[in-house]
Design a protein around this nucleic acid. Structure first.
Lengths: 334, 334
DNA sequence: CTCATGGCTGAAAAGTAATTTCAGCGCGCC
DNA sequence: GGCGCGCTGAAATTACTTTTCAGCCATGAG
């Protein structure tokens, strides 16, 4: 336990994240404590496979081997010591420990405990449900079943991995926002529009941008109390990062919804909401599962804001329903 | 009967350990086969409380205190080291280890793993009771869980209710289409755009319409081999029905994606794909679950078409990925 | 093509936790 | 009341985990 504390401190000092961000800021943030970001990952074993997938790109080859081993056989790995796992994966103890850290645990000891827990969870009832990839010659029945299953898995992973602290902060910022801009390109733009549509319905001022130039132009107008949200699965979409950076520099509260919390976009985001990364197959591009994941996050944001601003949100919602009523044909369906 | 067996185990572990452990530990550990591991001493965590009760009479007072602690709070004890647990129970490390042995584990290390597993099992067992409506005063944690759960349910419902025959026909029509128009308003328009984005990626000619006037104007141009798709949850959105009717009258193949297969739109649809209708609450408008459902249907359509047109779809997909690559910042995430 | 650079990697050192030993001491039995 | 059995925990020992550090490989610049 005491070692865990020490390591946390050490981690902060070695990683440059926490100190680099406040320096970039031109003015002070009145309401948010940056400290909340240092303890973001309560080790939820259920989402381990998802976390492995999310972090896999950041990992080195040998770390990936370790991560695969633990994700593939939690029960077996839980029975092994560091040395044993290192041997099994053909790596060294140091690498195993490093991987454990990357997955969000203070050390191997704790990862091992989580593995034991995960194994028990899997064994008890809920089967791990490893669906096969969708193949070219699958029947449509199979396609429907597999797609539904994968999306359901994706939702479960996202929910398990979502950092509620970050979500809370994001909701708070949105609820108090003077104005909200949402940046998204391609498939993510649809998610951005979805969010904006919902926020407009509860009386907030929100805009979705897909044109990078206009987005930057608008971002210049942002200031404190405004909120900018960037949605990008890869975390590296320049056209989306750029306006977020501008908004960030102008003092707006910035939120990133991304599958790569370590990505370049993290530098300009006050709050990061991580979406899960499902493995993608040839026929099923990443966009599909990332969209599902993003939409869940967006829905959570919306509900959270609606709760916070219930006094104004509830009447606004009913009003929007009524306004729509006469756009439907009058014949009552049953 | 079983008690006799247990005692035998206990005997072995307690009496023979002085000579047994130093020999076996360093040498045999690496050579042990996973299958044989379970044979000698099966540590079944589920029955821990029972075992504590059974063995309590044979225990000394301090050992009982330890046993009670682990049986009463597995999760809490799993987080503690030997020293920690010894302190909490007011005993010494040696006693903790002795108790572990008595309970059937090689040492405290293994008992601790079993405790973690047990805790997870317990948590998993009591978890899945969150299907209530989302309330205004729900915590964000609950909101996330409930939303994810509802959407997952929605996906399962949709997949179960989807008529594969209709889907098959729709896929066939799309695969052979000269041109595809998709009509959707509001939230459904985002789904329409999503479908169109995907179809464009595999080389089909597709357009999404949200402007009812333009939609009708375009619908007039439709003829045989063209496909028109209308997306409306209510099945009564006039602005969407109208262009579908026009396309239908001009001989195009028409598809309706709707939650009301008996609705007015059915009259002009050659194929009807039914989306599921989840109950909606005040905070969770119908748009949310209908969207999830619609997206699943749209994904199925896409995959189906991609399969059918694999020869052209596959290269088109890879080409679109490559084209996007340089819109991302070059820094590779390894 | 060569060199410098930076970061990954694993062997070994250092540190921490678990296990064993052993002396003390309470408790029941004679 | 003395004797001894065996429970108990502090300390020593051992096993395991974590950290350090130097080698190595890939990468990119000159």
């Amino acid at each position: 336990m005491s070692s865990g504390v020490k390591e946390t401190f050490k981690d902060e000092s070695t990683k440059t994240h926490p100190e680099n961000r406040p320096e970039t800021r031109p003015d002070i943030r009145p309401d948010i404590h940056p400290a909340s970001r240092s303890a973001p990952a309560p080790p939820v074993p259920a989402a381990l496979a998802a976390k492995v997938r999310t972090l896999a790109p950041t990992m080195t080859r040998s770390m990936q081997r370790v991560a695969e081993a633990v994700a593939g056989d939690p029960a077996g790995c839980a029975a092994l010591t560091v040395t044993g796992l290192a041997e099994r994966t053909g790596t060294s103890e140091a690498t195993v420990v490093r991987t454990s850290r990357l997955l969000g645990y203070p050390g191997y000891r704790d990862l091992r405990l989580a593995l034991a827990a995960l194994a028990a969870q899997q064994a008890a009832g809920s089967a791990p449900a490893v669906t096969a990839d969708i193949a070219v010659d699958d029947s449509l029945i199979d396609v429907v079943a597999k797609l539904a299953q994968e999306e359901r898995q994706c939702l479960a992973d996202t929910a398990a991995a979502l950092d509620v602290t970050q979500l809370e902060a994001a909701v708070a910022a949105l609820s108090a926002a003077r104005r909200i801009d949402v940046y998204g390109i391609g498939a993510s733009n649809l998610v951005a529009q979805d969010l904006v549509q919902k926020l407009l319905r509860i009386g907030l001022i929100a805009h979705a941008h897909s044109d990078p130039h206009l987005a930057v132009t608008n971002a210049v107008q942002m200031r404190a109390r405004d909120v900018a949200i960037a949605i990008t699965h890869s975390g590296r979409t320049t056209d989306v990062i750029e306006p977020l950076r501008v908004a960030f520099d102008h003092g707006a509260t910035t939120i990133a919804i991304t599958g790569r919390p370590d990505g370049e976009i993290a530098a300009y985001a006050d709050h990061i909401l991580t979406t899960s990364t499902a493995r993608e197959s040839e026929l099923r591009p990443a966009a599909m599962s990332s969209r599902t994941s993003q939409l869940l996050v967006v829905d959570c944001l919306f509900i959270g804001v609606a709760q916070r601003t219930y006094e104004t949100a509830a009447p606004a919602l009913s009003a929007s329903y009524e306004a729509l009523a006469h756009r439907h044909s009058p014949r009552t369906g049953h």
